[in-house]
Computed example of a mutant assay.
Amino acid sequence: MTNVKNSTNMSESQQSICDWAEGIFGPVADPRALVARAMLEMKELDEAVADRDISEIGREAADVLILLYRLADQFGLDLDGEVQGKMAINRARKWSAKGDGTGSHV
């Protein structure tokens, strides 16, 4: 069994998460494995949302984000930086709301 430090006093970052994951799971052989696992975690997130289980929603959303951090890292991307750049694009677009809390740009 791998020894895992308790990091309750540590603020996590994409780098610390990726370092931890590689230490526990090893290097990523195929980034698509991360996508497949994220899809599984999204299904679990969907189930938690359907059940309105707040604590499980938080945990499953975190699982998805952890996998996305690791996926971005495989391509040398800073996911937080990518979100900042994408939000700049989104804020400059015109949007059409669908009435369900989602929408698309026009």
Rank of each mutant, 00 (worst) to 15 (best):
N3P: 11
E22V: 06
G76E: 01
V28H: 00
L79Q: 04
V64I: 10
V4P: 05
S55A: 12
A36M: 04
G26W: 01
E47K: 12
E60P: 01
N9W: 08
M87A: 06
I89K: 15
A36R: 03
M42E: 03
L77W: 13
L68M: 13
S96F: 07
R52D: 12
M1W: 00
M39D: 11
S11D: 05
E41S: 09
F75V: 07
M42P: 10
K43P: 10
R70Y: 07
V35G: 11
I17P: 01
D78Y: 09
W20R: 09
S7Y: 11
A61D: 09
D100A: 05
L45N: 02
T2K: 06
R70V: 02
A50S: 10
A21M: 10
A92L: 12
S104Y: 13
N3I: 14
V49R: 12
I66W: 03
V83M: 06
I89T: 13
T2F: 00
G103T: 04
G85A: 14
A29S: 15
M39P: 11
T8K: 04
A62M: 13
D30N: 15
V35W: 12
E56S: 08
F25V: 01
R70A: 04
R91N: 06
A92G: 14
D78G: 03
A61I: 04
P27M: 10
E44K: 03
D80V: 00
K98W: 10
R59K: 13
I66L: 13
G26V: 05
S13L: 01
R70F: 02
A92Y: 14
T102R: 08
E22K: 12
A48R: 08
D19P: 06
N9T: 03
F25N: 09
D51G: 02
A36Y: 02
L67H: 06
A62Q: 15
D80E: 07
N9G: 11
D51K: 15
D19T: 06
K43F: 08
R91L: 04
D73H: 15
N90W: 00
K5T: 11
A38C: 14
G23P: 01
W95Y: 06
D78C: 01
K94P: 04
G99D: 07
R91S: 01
S104A: 14
D30F: 07
A38Q: 04
L67M: 11
V64L: 01
L68H: 00
E47G: 11
L34W: 02
A97T: 04
M87D: 09
A97S: 13
V64K: 00
S16H: 03
L67N: 08
V83Y: 02
G103D: 06
I89E: 12
C18F: 02
S16F: 03
V83C: 03
N90V: 03
S96A: 12
V4R: 05
K43W: 06
G58F: 08
S16L: 13
K5A: 15
A61T: 11
R70K: 10
L34M: 05
N90M: 05
L40Q: 14
E44C: 00
S96E: 15
L45Q: 00
L68Y: 03
I24M: 12
V49E: 13
F75S: 05
I89P: 08
I24D: 02
N9H: 09
K98L: 11
L77C: 02
R52K: 15
R93C: 05
E47L: 11
K43Q: 15
T2Q: 04
K86M: 09
K86Q: 08
W95D: 02
G58H: 09
I89H: 13
